[in-house]
Design a protein around this nucleic acid. Structure first.
Lengths: 346, 346
DNA sequence: TATTTTCGTGCAATCGATTGTATTTTGTTA
DNA sequence: TAACAAAATACAATCGATTGCACGAAAATA
């Protein structure tokens, strides 16, 4: 295995009998180097297959052109798509995206952030884990002067920008849609309200009921984790307690899927007996035998905007002006079979 | 925003009136430093909240304790799980995993690899894209002396280790399972045979038919891309051409899902009229109304083993002994409803 | 007490690139 | 051709940590 000798600017300088400083300036197209020398250096660099040592550069300049993204799980389509959006914006500008997962665990999250800071990234994008309450590790990022951008799941910390979805409006639209379809006993299977997104979805659901003069029945409201199993259990729970309901607005597509399965296995007809709406527009929702109505969140756009916010932020950073930008995107309701009691409106 | 001043070993040395060299030795627990000084340094380091500058260290030592993983898509459960396995093995040893996606595109793949080499990673794990034929960018890794490990999708390059699944056996088992269930006209919807995995699955299918004295009918064999849409189109194609078949062994769960949907929309009964087996054990296969029989690949284990191979490799590297390790894992058939004509055997 | 080890520490070079400040070379003008 | 401005290049410090070598002091031995 021929361990390729790394070519440095010193090799070039020796070969051309000039100083390394001149080589560096030539490579950086400084106007203090003659055209002739520049051409010579560029040619030699190419001949020797010179590659700039980014470590040395980073050590000197303090910039690595790496940014970190921390998400709960990389295999959730939503997060993967946000990452895609970030990549699309930043890679053309020479940045490299380092992806980390917290596995919905604060300690992991803190560890990943520490590792990122240690690698000297130029910025961090994060969607916090469900278990994140202590925010010391997040404040540490801000305190180190590293640009930080929340997306989707944010925390209220001053001086930190965020890009989120208007979960409230999404939930409101979903619930109102069910009402318009003639459902009145609408249950809500939500998530842990410690996470703002679930709180907002809950609020949207409540608001839609109120606006439409539908009484709120606490027994129809459950809080579960975002899994298929939890959806199954939630429906069993509702049925066991003989809670009446003719529709379910779930804050998660996975839970909605579980709910559907359980209902159908008990011979409920969807959407005739029970209407169902999920949240996230996970790809599988489209492919179900009975495609699921759900709230879509434009995750790629979210990533792109988060990246743009970051780019602005590092521009401002030199001026040491602190900016805190908060972007809120509007979600979109995908009306599909599981909620169209009256038949398709398309 | 108080930009925290970075504390260096020089700050410690000044404070204690000793040289930076001694500080460095103390921090590295060298036996050339007195116990007293060591304790003093450690205490001061803690007080000042000293953090080692990994860039400087990397520049000096040539090691970054970062490894790169390149996969086609991070949101495919299979790849996400392999990454999980790698993380599990390497993070406890102080490594940080940098995740990159090629989006099934060679140029992207080459770009990501270049970026990784530029970041001075200590090793690269890769599952090549479907469009990878030119392997210059991969040979470049080996030529730089950076440990390289293929997983799942490999290429035949000397001096490169790999961890793969025995796709042949998986396909053989799947096909034989269908035969045992009484199906005889078994179609195969495979993928591009340029990718070894698809070639091997095809070979396994053929072998199982031959061993069981079933004639091979070319018209029952299709090659498509790994999407739901392709599965739908494939079944339409078979039906349009009036090809007879009573089972489908698909090299992809997504394709199998598409096939199922199309068959059911045309009122074929599964598994009575047509039996179906997929490949990969994607999570959704379990949650379908009629759970899909599929071949599971122990991806987390694959990641763990790949990581272990890497760790061995860097040990050997010092001895400049070239090792090329090839690990092949055995897949497992998950027998579920879509192929159990005779009823569950559980 | 004189001499040799041993131990602890400091000096300075190194990793590769950048950049402010000389210094040299070239070109221009009187 | 002398004098000076401008252009091109070199020198050396810097980023932060590591490490071979050298040096002095204390400890061990004769």
């Amino acid at each position: 295995m021929r361990q390729k000798e790394k070519v440095t600017i010193y090799d070039i300088s020796k070969k051309l009998n000039i100083s390394a400083a001149t080589v560096s300036r030539a490579l950086n197209n400084s106007n203090r180097v003659s055209l002739k020398t520049k051409e010579l250096v560029l040619k030699t660099a190419k001949d020797l297959n010179y590659q700039q040592n980014t470590l040395a550069l980073a050590l000197k300049s303090g910039r690595t052109f790496n940014v970190g993204v921390v998400v709960p799980y990389i295999n959730h389509t939503f997060f993967a798509s946000v990452i895609r959006g970030i990549e699309e914006e930043l890679e053309p500008k020479g940045y490299h995206v380092i992806i980390c997962q917290s596995h919905e665990n604060v300690e992991n999250e803190a560890k990943q952030i520490k590792a990122l800071l240690n690698t000297h990234i130029d910025g961090i994008f994060i969607s916090v884990s469900k278990t994140t309450e202590d925010i010391k590790h997040i404040e540490a990022v801000r305190d180190e002067g590293v640009p930080l951008i929340f997306f989707d799941r944010k925390m209220d910390i001053s001086g930190v920008s965020s890009v989120t979805i208007n979960d409230y409006e999404g939930a409101f639209a979903a619930t109102e849609h069910l009402i318009k379809q003639g459902y009145t006993k609408i249950a809500h299977i939500g998530g842990d309200p410690k996470l703002q997104i679930y709180k907002h979805r809950y609020d949207g659901y409540i608001a839609a009921l109120k606006v439409n003069n539908i009484a709120i029945d606490e027994s129809r409201i459950l809080e579960v984790s975002s899994t298929v199993e939890a959806g199954i259990a939630a429906v069993q729970d509702l049925l066991n307690k003989k809670t009446e309901f003719d529709a379910i607005f779930s804050a998660s597509d996975y839970v909605a899927l579980g709910a559907m399965r359980e209902l159908r296995s008990r011979d409920f007809k969807i959407p005739q007996d029970v209407g169902i709406v999920g949240f996230s527009n996970e790809p599988f929702t489209k492919y179900l035998e009975r495609p699921l109505t759900t709230v879509g969140q434009t995750p790629v756009l979210m990533g792109q905007i988060a990246a743009q916010v970051f780019l602005e932020q590092i521009k401002e950073k030199n001026k040491s002006v602190q900016v805190e930008k908060r972007v809120v995107l509007m979600p979109e309701l995908y009306e599909r079979e599981t909620s169209l009691k009256k038949g398709s409106t398309h």
